[in-house]
């Protein structure tokens, strides 16, 4: 994937410093959300580093592999041009400002969280955040709706974790290979209904 730049990309690929500043721009633009939309705008449309197709491949890889999606995306962009050093430069650019800011917020929180006024605000904010957490599962439920086995797997996983307090690591290590065996591509049989991610 690194061999031939597609038409529309610049002939000279970005260096480490450009990767750092590019991802810094993405992070700064995305204050308030829409990180992956902003990275597409800046990387594909403004700087022409990648074709749209290359970018979308990156999103696929970033979602597939472990790790936070947006951070994996930065790693993909960095690796695409400069290998591991590029990945680290892109990662640093993406995290520098938000993480520094979060550290400031964190220090203030641990210093002052016992103040009653702050605790009252946080009690409300926490309720909203819990609603956001609750919506995460529903957000991806649609794509599994027509696959009964997927729903069974999801339900068993949920019950084991919520009611039997099974920990994540053993659960994934046991259920993961079983689910992979079930979904192993079988050319002779019609495959189970495709997800909508293709």
């Amino acid at each position: 994937m690194t061999e031939s730049p597609a038409p529309g990309t610049t002939p000279s690929p970005p260096g480490l410093r450009q990767l750092f500043t590019g991802m810094l721009m993405v992070a700064l633009s995305a204050f308030g959300g829409g990180l992956s939309a902003w990275s597409q705008r800046i990387i594909v449309e403004q700087r022409h580093w990648m074709s749209n197709e290359e970018f979308l491949t990156g999103l696929t890889v970033a979602r597939l592999f472990p790790g936070p999606n947006q951070i994996n995306m930065a790693v993909y962009v960095g690796t695409f041009f400069r290998g591991l050093p590029g990945a680290l430069a892109a990662l640093a650019g993406m995290l520098l400002v938000p993480f520094t800011l979060l550290m400031g917020v964190g220090l203030l929180y641990f210093q002052f969280h016992t103040l009653p006024a702050l605790d009252r605000v946080l009690a409300g904010v926490v309720a909203a955040a819990a609603g956001m957490a609750l919506s995460m599962g529903f957000k991806i439920l649609d794509q599994y709706w027509k696959d009964p086995m997927a729903l069974v797997l999801a339900a068993v996983t949920f019950v084991l974790m919520t009611f039997f307090h099974v920990r994540l690591v053993p659960l994934v290590l046991v259920a993961g290979p079983l689910a992979m065996a079930w979904y192993w591509p079988r050319p002779s049989h019609p495959p189970a209904p495709q997800g909508e991610r293709r």
């Binding site: 597939l64 599994y144 996983t157 949920f158």
Partner: peptide
């Protein structure tokens, strides 16, 4: 292919468990 399709439903189940856990922890 197997990793993507197999781990997807497990992820779905985990995310629901996460939602319930955070809701319980919020304890409002």
């Amino acid at each position: 292919v197997a990793f993507e399709r197999g781990l997807g439903p497990i992820t779905l189940g985990i995310l629901f468990a996460v939602g319930v856990k955070i809701l319980k922890t919020a304890d409002t």
